[in-house]
Design a protein around this nucleic acid. Structure first.
Lengths: 94, 94
DNA sequence: CCTCTATTTAGACGCCTGTCTAATTGTCTC
DNA sequence: GAGACAATTAGACAGGCGTCTAAATAGAGG
């Protein structure tokens, strides 16, 4: 869980996830959307991969990245549980 | 949104949120749950407050902290939208 | 095998962050 | 007002993080 939230803490990486939510993309296509060198982008990819937020597969010279929604659901659930806890407490003492 | 995710990137702060989900607590009570000095805890409180993830009110010498679920819902929604995007794409190309 | 393209790895650098100790602020009680 | 208690602010410091340039790897195609 820590790797996931660490990965989400950077705005560039969150934007990468948003783009990948729309469609699978190659490293190069993704890089075009940002004012940053390719090595920097590659670093962000690796952080997201380590957190298992994205998956990659090579196709010829290019590498295709895609979103792994399973891990995103963990984030979703984490936030939900916290809110649910707080709500439960409110109901007990109205 | 950036302050929120930055705040969530630290495990100590996520644990603080979990505790506050169960019940409102004073700074001192919270600090007891962690192996850390009170100034360090105070720093974490301030990061969470800046992100508006928690609210505080003074009562005598003590300061009570509570969860602000509104902002947590933003996180919830953010994750949801991303997952929804990915799902929509899957359905279009089955 | 050489070269071109796509991408990553290595290493360096400055800034941001989490932690600490010491000092300060705010509040209650005598 | 003095002392005690709760909590924060100030300042210092090590380690982590995001970015860059330069070099390396991987594959495609002559």
């Amino acid at each position: 869980m820590n790797l996931i939230f660490k990965a989400l803490a950077d705005p560039t990486r969150r934007e990468i996830l948003r783009l990948l939510g729309r469609s699978e993309m190659t490293a190069g296509e993704l890089a075009q959307h940002f004012d940053m060198t390719k090595p920097s982008m590659s670093h962000h990819f690796s952080v997201l991969k380590d957190a298992d937020l994205i998956r990659s597969r090579r196709e010829g010279q290019q590498i295709w990245y895609s979103l792994n929604t399973t891990v995103l659901q963990d984030v979703f659930t984490w936030a939900w549980d916290l809110i649910a806890d707080a709500r439960r407490k409110e109901v007990q003492t109205p």
